[in-house]
């Protein structure tokens, strides 16, 4: 289970409401479960951010795969 999507935090309101961008799509999500700042990436599930992602990894998934794969192959 558990569809979750990465999104960039654009704004934080009232402490636990974040306006995030899923990719040309802004939405409000709940921030109750994470400590996060504007500009960081979060993983969103059922309207709640459930974890923080690093900015680079949020932006460049392909590159992440490449690095992990390369690292693994080097071992």
């Amino acid at each position: 289970m558990c569809i979750a999507m990465p999104a960039e935090v654009l704004e934080i309101k009232d402490g636990n409401i974040g306006v995030v961008d899923f990719g040309d799509l802004k939405q409000e999500v709940r921030l109750d479960l994470v400590d996060v700042s504007v500009g960081e990436f979060v993983l969103v599930h059922v309207g709640f951010a459930i974890q923080r992602l690093s900015r680079e990894e949020g932006l460049e998934t392909r590159e992440v795969f490449r690095q992990v794969h390369a690292a693994m192959m080097e071992e």
Partner: peptide
């Protein structure tokens, strides 16, 4: 419903 991914969101709501 849901596994550990979802349960904390419900917990947060209950605590509010």
């Amino acid at each position: 419903v849901g596994f550990e991914t979802t349960a904390p969101t419900v917990a947060a709501a209950i605590l509010a």
